[in-house]
Computed example of a mutant assay.
Amino acid sequence: MKLKGKVKFVNKDKSLFFPTLRKRVDAYFSENNIPRTANTTMVVKSIVLLLSYVLPFLALLAFQPAWPLSLLLWFVMGLGVAGIGMSVMHDANHGAFSNSKRVNSLMGHTLNLVGGSAFNWKLQHNILHHTYTNVVDMDEDIQDRLVLRFSPHTKVKFFHQLQWVYAFVFYGLLTLYWVVAKDFVQYSLFLKNGVNTNTPSQNRSWFLKLITMKVLYFSIVLAVPTVFFGIPFVEVLLGFLLMHFVAGIILTVVFQLAHTVEGTSHPRPDEHGNIENDWAIHQMNTTVNFSRKSKLISWYVGGLNFQIEHHLFPRVCHVHYPAIADIVKETAAEFNIPYLENETFGQAVRSHIATLHRFGRLPSLNEAIG
């Protein structure tokens, strides 16, 4: 199925919401003489998060601590993997880290450092998720996964009734699946559906780089500790799995709290492929903020708790989201557009669990209509 150009948004009511909002946000940056990209806080954060991934691994090799302590180091690495994913590579691959394409590319490839693929991620996230948020068959991030259902438009199965119980276990498998198989699956998928527009020669070159990167990643993380430092492979493997389980749960939960919670919509295009809504208002209807007032959460999750601001202004570095959030909220109220948010992390988690529970029992809207 070709996805490119399949669905488009039609601003039937000629809403002036986004032009007005964009003008006000532009004025904030120009009047305060603030660049939209990274500041000192962002640079320091990036260094801290990268070191939280690299230093524990070096400590494992250099000191070879007892197994309980080594697991703690792997645990910290998991926190680092998630932090890099949310706070470093994410902004860079959106072009929001720096005005320099070279710097954005370098920081964006920190995803490759933790076993992923920056190229695939841009196709899945920047093109599909950000353009077609919560549109089933278009937004790959809400596609059903094995025993998990994230859309009211897909077929409900008997085991989905318990997904609110077992979902978090499967969330922990996300990054492990990513580094082992997901990039290869997406390579084939994005070629078939037209999202990957590279030439055949470019794709052959990229696929070779992908294989090389995977070999290097697994060699360094799994083989080097055993072959060159004599650490038992079982200990290394268990630590590796713990690292990815920690990173997987964090990354998946943070994402789900922004889109798979109560109050969000899941619109479907009509028979002509049209969604009769302004794209920006669609983002407001499908995206939820959480814990906006928590500085600790905002620091660690890379502003992904300001998901509304991120979806509207993805090329603005996340360190600026707290400042522009009030502008977005006030403008939304002026145009009678909902500004969806959960005030605390706990409220957001409960809302997500309630949505999993509802989707686990809710018949497909297509079946209900039929």
Rank of each mutant, 00 (worst) to 15 (best):
T133I: 06
D141Y: 00
M86S: 09
L72C: 11
R102L: 15
N104K: 10
N112I: 14
H129Y: 02
N93Y: 12
F75C: 07
M89L: 14
L71H: 01
N93W: 07
N126Q: 10
F97I: 11
N134W: 00
N134R: 05
L106W: 14
H130D: 01
T110M: 08
L72M: 12
K101M: 14
H125G: 07
G85M: 03
H130Q: 05
F97K: 09
E140V: 13
N120L: 14
V88Y: 01
W121T: 11
S98T: 13
G116A: 12
N99S: 15
I84M: 07
V136T: 15
F75A: 07
R102F: 15
L111A: 11
L111P: 09
A96T: 13
E140W: 08
F119S: 12
V135L: 05
W74H: 05
F119D: 14
L106E: 10
N112R: 11
T131C: 00
V135Q: 05
G115M: 06
G85F: 00
G116W: 00
V136H: 10
G108M: 12
F119H: 15
F75T: 05
V76L: 04
L73G: 03
V88C: 09
S117K: 05
M86A: 09
N134G: 05
M89W: 07
N93R: 08
V114R: 02
M86D: 04
V76F: 06
G115C: 10
T131G: 01
Q124H: 13
N134L: 04
N120K: 13
S117E: 06
W74N: 06
M89T: 15
L79A: 03
M89K: 11
L79P: 02
N93G: 14
N112E: 15
L111R: 09
N120D: 14
E140P: 09
D137K: 07
T133W: 00
L123W: 06
E140Q: 14
V88E: 01
N99D: 15
A96E: 11
N99K: 15
D139V: 05
N93V: 11
M77H: 00
G78A: 00
S87P: 09
S87I: 03
R102V: 15
L72F: 13
N112P: 10
Y132H: 10
V81P: 03
G85V: 07
V103E: 12
S117I: 08
W74P: 04
F97C: 11
M138G: 00
W74V: 00
N120Y: 12
S100Y: 10
A96W: 10
G108P: 12
I84F: 04
M107C: 13
V135G: 02
L113F: 13
S98V: 12
L113K: 06
L111F: 11
W74Y: 11
A118H: 13
M77K: 07
T110P: 04
L72G: 12
L128K: 12
Y132A: 00
H90Y: 04
V88D: 01
W121L: 10
L106D: 09
L128D: 08
I84S: 01
L123S: 06
F97H: 12
L106S: 11
G80Q: 06
W121A: 10
V136F: 13
N104A: 11
T110K: 05
A96P: 12
G95Y: 08
D137A: 04
H125R: 00
G78F: 02
H94S: 02
A82C: 07
